[in-house]
Each structure stands twice: as C-alpha cells, then as structure tokens.
Amino acid sequence: MGTFIQQIINGLSLGSVYALIAVGYSLVYSILLFSNFAHGGFLVIGGYICYYTLNLMGTNIWVAGFAALVGAGFCAVLTERLAYKPIRERTSVTLYLLIASMGMSIVIENIFVIVAGGRFRALPPVIPTTPVDLFGLATTSAFDLLSLVAAVVFLGGLQLFLTRTKWGLAIRAAAYDLRVAGLMGVNVGRLISIVFFVAGLLAAVGGIFLSVRYTLYPQLGMITIKAFVAAVIGGLGSLPGAVVGSLILGLAEMLTAGFLSSQLRDLVVFSLLVITLIVRPSGLFGKDIKEKV
C-alpha cells in the first residue's frame, strides 16, 4: 500500500513535469498547426541557463530560475522569428514548419554540444530531495512534491492568463481561427511571439526539474517525446488534454516501474499511444475533425 501511494505521487510528479512541456507544445500546435520539434530545445536552454547562472554567478535558485524562464522564453521567440516566420509568410503549408523545427532542434542541441560539451552535468543541490513522510502512509521526496507544486502554480497561472486577460482571450480565439483573430485587429505576429514566449518559459520550468531528476545534457530535450505522446493522448491542441494525458503517462510510467519493471516504462508509454490512436485518434479531449457550419 505504501509503495502504491508512493508510486502514485511519483507518477503525478513526473506527469506534472510532462504537463509543463506538453502544454506549451500543444499551445503552439493550437495556433500554428504544426508539431514544434524544437520544443525540447527550449527545455535544454532553460536547464543550461539555470546551471550556469547558479555556478558562474553564484546566485540562488530564484534568480537562476527566473533567468532560465525568461531566457528560454526569449530563445523560443527568437527561434520563431528566425526559422518559422519567414516560412509562415511565404506559405500556409505547415509541413515546412515541421521540417524547419526538426532542423532547429538539431541546431540547438549542437550549440550546447559545442559550447557546453556533451557530458552530463548535475545541478547544484538547489531543490531539496529530502524524504518526506506522508502521514505515516508512505514516504516520498520533497523534490516530487515541489515539482508537483511548481506545475500547479505555473499551469494555474497559464489558465488565469488565458481566461482573464485580453491577450489570453485573443490566443483562445486564434487557436480557433488565426485569420479571423487578425481581422479583429490582433497583431498576429505579436500574438505568435507571446505564445512562443509562454511555451519556452513553461518548457524551462520542466527543464529545471528534469535536470535535477536526471542530470543535464544536450540531448535532454529528447524527453519531450514523452510530452508529445501525452499531448497526442490528450488530444493535440487541447490544453486540458495535454495536462490529463501527461498525468496518465506519468502514472503509467511510475506504476510500471514500481510493480513490473523499470525497463518496461517506455513500452507502456508507446503502447498507450498506439491504443489511443486506434481507439480514439483525436485523443481524449480532441476536437472532432468535422467542420463547423
């Protein structure tokens, strides 16, 4: 029983980190209708900014975290301006954006291979990992609880931004019809930049927690595959779907690791993806493909 509760908490914690990544990815998808494969790069950028700010400047985690979030947000905007905007302005075929994003993913990864080197780096112990006793029922680590809390805070903040602000409203409108949002007087270029900034920022939060969980290295962004799977299970472009899909995935991974075998984790993840695609191709919260009147 103790192990079960413990694995549930670990699963939610891991799932919440996936959710931070999946939501940003889904947000970009909902506006521009392409899978941004450079999204994992934003996470790595966040991780390295945090690492270097802590080590070279000796700041505390709050300053380093802030720098990482803002820095990754700006790099995401830069990626869009340099690699996607020129394509967007010439064609409406989103396949080109997909291909460009694969290229940018390789570019970002290799920038870190060259600049930081390929080795694995551990973040200084800035996020406590001490064991926490849960009312005598189970033990978990402070780290798992903190990543859960961080995800709740940031996803809650995103929800507030989307529902309470003017630009949030415009983003929801644009997710339905970008062209008509432009006809309403929305500066579409600025809207897309805001979306990329938010996506980069959320990815960086995930990146910091993943760097502590696993260590930091240029290919850490590969883990975004899991977040993509979560977003597809939840329904591409749906933010609640991305969150629910991520939690399901985190739970499935941790329960598999706890009760079957750690090696089967990825097998379970991709089995869930295949089952979803067969049973419900548009995902749990996906929109039906049929057009509206």
């Binding site: 003017k166 409203l169 929801r172 409108a173």
Partner: peptide, 11 residues
C-alpha cells in the same frame, strides 16, 4: 465557436 457571445464581442 468555442468562445461565448460576450467573448466574441470583446474580441
């Protein structure tokens, strides 16, 4: 379509 009448007008 997924926004309310009020939200549409605010857009």
């Amino acid at each position: 379509a997924p926004l309310t009448v009020m939200e549409n007008l605010m857009m």
